[in-house]
Design a protein around this nucleic acid. Sequence first.
DNA 1: TCGGATTACCTGACATGGTTCGAAGTATGT
DNA 2: ACATACTTCGAACCATGTCAGGTAATCCGA
Lengths: 206, 206
Amino acid sequence: MSGNPNGDRRSARRQETLAEIVAAAWEMVAEHGLAGLSMRDLGDRVGMRAQSLYSYFASKNKIYDAMFMEGYQAFSAWMEATDDPRFRADPARPARLLAHRFVEFCTIDPVRYQLLFQRTIPGFEPSPESYAVALKAYENARERLADSGLRDQETTDLWTAMLTGLADQQISNDPGGDRWERLVDRAVDLLLADPQTHPHTESDKA
Amino acid sequence: MSGNPNGDRRSARRQETLAEIVAAAWEMVAEHGLAGLSMRDLGDRVGMRAQSLYSYFASKNKIYDAMFMEGYQAFSAWMEATDDPRFRADPARPARLLAHRFVEFCTIDPVRYQLLFQRTIPGFEPSPESYAVALKAYENARERLADSGLRDQETTDLWTAMLTGLADQQISNDPGGDRWERLVDRAVDLLLADPQTHPHTESDKA
DNA sequence: TCGGATTACCTGACATGGTTCGAAGTATGT
DNA sequence: ACATACTTCGAACCATGTCAGGTAATCCGA
């Protein structure tokens, strides 16, 4: 349907505007915090009235939703860029690499971290589509973790808790520094050294 | 000054009202979330208009501030009451006990956790007085940690990160359950088993 | 090229939120 | 009883997210 060049053109323009709005939103939250996103100011930034934004996003939370999705896409891309065949033979280094990439992803953009990993916006809940992207990103990361030797749920849970904990402390108590970031290696090694990390007793093909 | 009984009476009444407002505020945030605190509704709850609250608290954030302080006082009290029969026979008792108490404190009241340990209220920053209470609480906890064998900064940093990470995951991904809470022992043991945890090489009386 | 439809954006308005001001009522101290 | 301080209130201000309706530009088929 419609090899119509004009129709494509119009919808392309619309896509552009959508992207422009989201980009402006990222700028705003970077400057004023995640909760500091104002429809009127956002409208100003893209050169239209606040109400006009509603022909692109049905509500402010839909904008957060778009950012949420974009954030998790960035997360997937970021974690995939970790793929480095040089380390596939060594069980310790991929894990460390993964961990560092994760913590870096969090600390690089604290506002994004807040949006993706802490649920702090009052009425916001990701749409099914965005949530699906998030789940895919997690699944992706989980597989990479498994590749680097961490498989059972309790261990990956502990892994998640440790790294989000480190990232969180880093962001809130030493922004810009590395007081917690430099503990990442030690944390990873702790987990890898733990006998419970490689369970051959149950739920494992004897 | 004035040992005046009437003056005392008036200020006592004022103290009562202050406490009543804060108590009502805790109820409200428990029901509507930390950001769901509305001056008008809060006024309704204590039987006055929203504007009247301003003769008790200069702003909404001052109410958050009072809650913040109260929260850290509760934290101190909670961590001091550390006798738990579950751990009496446990060799790693003090450390495990501390860890469990901490995670419990967080999960028991997620809203309080959000107020005390995550900085998520838009314009809120604790007053110097409240912050002093928070610092004292941390210092208190740090001493207890030291008593149970965790002394150097990196180790206590890692401890903090692990436990807040566990609490955070528990609260946001399995509220009411124990999927992360039950990993607390393992996390503590990991830290205790780590050779780096007991450094006798430097900054230690030979 | 022209008329109808679709689109982009606007103005105006509403509800709700925190907050200020100044007046009225109430308790307190002499 | 009177002056004073304290408490509470009504009205209003400003910023916010959002809805309803209008207007001008753009696109499409004839």
